[in-house]
Design a protein around this nucleic acid. Structure first.
Lengths: 245, 245
DNA sequence: GCGAGTCGTTGATTTGGATCAAAGGCGTCG
DNA sequence: CGACGCCTTTGATCCAAATCAACGACTCGC
């Protein structure tokens, strides 16, 4: 693809023949795990596969919500803005995650692709109708909402009461858990997002993130073989630093 | 009741003959608005009315969740603790609000009565069974979860990126909205919670809350006729200070 | 190869809110 | 009543993280 296309927000999607949902590798992680094979095929009938490049906007806070998505691959950042431009990243979505819980009305936050992402897209109305027919879908959605709520409360604790070191340590432990879920290494962690994303997620500045990483590195708690790869050399120490139960 | 009983955590509840659910004044605000009169009576068959005094614990983070509740009157604070005692109040519950969304497994946070409260209690299992029978209940729960999620994201923005004045201003506007919902004055606001609760909700200290109130007062934006009553003298200015869209 | 742009790091300085300290209200109870 | 305890306010000081300011590493297009 051209550099122009990469920057453009216009041609945001292109559809190609999807892999069958039944063979989907992350089905067990996603919403789709809620229903049996016949019903997955009903889902598949409604899906459009779309791809975005890094930096492209998937949805904007306040816009009417026309679609819901499953993340098939890549990472999304969700964020809210203040009128003067201050940004709070409210979360990152990884493969298997669902975007569009508050699917009635308007999006509560904006969503952007961190790097290249592949999404399974559904029209909100179709999706809603299907949910009404398949009660298991609704309970699964409730389950997802509850998980997100618990995560949000944990994040409030972090933002309201934790120090910079504790925030960074908690963040890495959270990423490690995420990696386990995706059957990746719990020790070597790729950071798809930029420093600014991490800062805006943890309620810090880029400089504080950078300095805190340096301290953790010089203390031998982590290693930074590349600027977007962390190795958790001493996970126990990291857990202590995160001040978690 | 004796002062002893007021302090004790032991005799936390007592049951008395409840008002009929069909006549409940806050039914339109609560979960119960989801179902028709016949089904409300099925709910009523499962309910136990319980009362708590200020400071009493309703549920504790990490404990198995045996009950879910509707707030009939009074205010609850929900909070999480760090091992060293730092506290983050993740939210307050007002009449009509539901406690126990993550009703499967363990409570994600602790809940305490701010003042005297009256709760409608259900056994989690009974409640779950009823939800499975009444699809409208499940969609209503999902709706509630979505609302809470949106509120949590708003709170993350506040905790991660707003200044002390902005936090206090946002908090008062939020209380004003709550008051409108409960058909109370949008201008004269009672604060059932202590300064410490407000501080732990907004990620500040008691002293900063107090000083910020003084500044808002001397700027003529609010009045404080009593220490737990605020009058929003200049709501427009308050909205500006809150930095909201 | 080279200038421009982006990102991350590092250093110097500032500052908003925390911490430390003390003194007023106000209700309770002996 | 008056002493005690609890909460809130206010003042003085401190500090963690923000801000301001360079600089180095990398990429991209020309």
């Amino acid at each position: 693809m051209s550099a122009h296309a990469r920057r453009s927000g216009a041609a945001a999607t292109r559809a190609v023949k999807p892999a069958e949902c039944l063979q989907c590798e992350i089905r067990h992680l996603a919403l789709c795990s809620a229903v049996d094979d016949p019903d997955v095929q009903r889902l598949q009938a409604l899906v459009t596969h779309v791809w975005f490049y890094g930096g492209q906007t998937i949805s904007t806070e306040g816009d009417p919500s026309e679609h819901v998505y499953n993340v098939a691959s890549g990472t999304l950042r969700l964020y809210k803005l203040l009128p003067d431009g201050r940004r709070q990243v409210t979360g990152f979505l990884y493969p298997g995650d669902f975007l569009g819980l508050a699917s009635i009305g308007t999006y509560a936050y904006s969503a952007e692709a961190v790097g290249a992402v592949h999404l399974c897209r559904f029209r909100s109305r179709d999706f809603k109708n299907l949910c009404d027919e398949l009660p298991k879908m609704n309970s699964r959605l409730l389950e997802i909402a509850n998980d997100e709520l618990a995560a949000a409360q944990e994040q409030m604790l972090l933002l309201g009461r934790k120090t910079a070191v504790e925030r960074i340590a908690s963040f890495f432990l959270h990423l490690a858990d995420q990696n386990v879920k995706l059957k990746r290494s719990p020790v070597v962690i790729d950071l798809p997002m930029r420093r600014g994303d991490i800062a805006d997620y943890l309620g810090l500045t880029i400089e504080t993130v950078s300095r805190t990483l340096r301290r953790l590195k010089s203390d031998g708690v982590i290693a930074l073989p590349e600027s977007n790869r962390v190795v958790l050399s001493d996970a126990d120490r990291l857990r202590e630093l995160a001040e978690e139960g």
